[in-house]
Amino acid sequence: MSAPLLSAEGLTLRFGRVPALLGVSLDLFPGEVLAIVGESGSGKTTLLRVLSGQAAPQEGRVLYRGQDIAAMGEAALRRLLRSEWGYVHQNPRDGLRMSVSAGGNVGERLMAAGVRHYGRIRAAAREWLARVEIDPARMDDLPGTFSGGMQQRLQIARTLVTHPALVFMDEPTGGLDVSVQARLLDLIRGLVADLGLSVLLVTHDIAAARLLAGRILVMRRGEVVEQGLTERVLEDPQHPYTQLLVSSVLAA
């Protein structure tokens, strides 16, 4: 197996006396989708923020391609976040510029990377809108005129346009109708396979994890209670909390 793309070692972060993360370690390998599951308040989103350098842990470290991200400096980290990394927010409004057209949203990362050809930016935007199943004729419309599912697809197009190596996704299907969720999950699965993306997927939705992830990591109260191949964890959960999570989905 190749070296991990991203590793975390002993991450700990407390808010006051409340631990949000307690000694969390993980490895993400190139081309892998790793799901972090757990109910709300289990520390998943905090973990994603720490892994993506947006919050600093009190203990432990995060390595990207073997390099400690805390030692990179803000400039290098920001460069990563707008080029090799991508971040998909649960609420598309947090990841989109609502006053900028759909095409402008998709083109922003290209422009930040120095592309200065209007026509080529438009062509890339058109191609990416089509890939996420948005009619390119709507390229010059504002995101506020889009449905929730379209906004989320637009956010994904905006993130993937620079072909990132690693994408952080925070509940990408949260807040959407069930039918819309299914379509979006299908789309993400297709894109991940086509682009060979590595993804850290935070979700409380076991079905989403089953569909997308090769491995699962179960969190509870800031701790990793169980991890393994998706099939294994879901078919044969070891920890009582995982058993509870899995059975509650089956029952539903």
Binding site: E74, A75, R78, G104, G107, E108, R109, M111, Y118, I121
Partner: peptide
Amino acid sequence: RRLHALADYGLMQVRLYEDIVR
């Protein structure tokens, strides 16, 4: 100040892009 420090000027270019769109 942070945007200048990091020479993070993509946003300004986006504004010009939007001008041409409109």
